[in-house]
Amino acid sequence: MRHSRFHPFVAVAGSLATTAVFACPSCPTAQVVRASVVGEDFWNLLVTMTVPFLLIGSLSALLYRVGLSPRDVVPARDRNESGAET
Rank of each mutant, 00 (worst) to 15 (best):
F53A: 15
A20R: 13
G57M: 05
G67C: 10
V10G: 06
V32W: 09
L59K: 04
E81F: 00
S58C: 09
R77E: 06
D78G: 01
A17C: 13
P75N: 06
V73R: 11
P25H: 09
S60G: 09
N44F: 00
V37E: 13
T50M: 15
E85Y: 01
L45F: 02
R34G: 06
C27W: 08
C24H: 13
V38A: 10
T29Y: 11
A11M: 10
L16H: 05
S4H: 03
N44D: 12
V21T: 13
V73Y: 03
F6N: 07
S60F: 03
R77V: 06
Q31A: 10
T18M: 15
Q31R: 14
A11S: 13
S26P: 01
S4C: 05
V66Y: 11
R77T: 02
F42K: 04
V10Q: 12
V33S: 07
A30P: 00
S26W: 08
L46R: 04
P52T: 13
F53H: 10
E40Y: 05
F9D: 12
H3D: 12
V47D: 05
T18F: 15
L16P: 01
R79M: 06
Y64E: 03
E85P: 00
R34I: 01
V10M: 15
F9E: 13
R65A: 14
G14V: 03
G57V: 02
F53I: 05
S4W: 07
A76F: 01
T50C: 11
T29N: 08
V51C: 07
S36H: 04
F22L: 15
L46S: 14
T86A: 04
I56M: 14
G83W: 04
L63T: 05
I56W: 10
A17P: 00
V47C: 10
L45D: 14
D72K: 06
E40V: 04
A17W: 06
R2D: 10
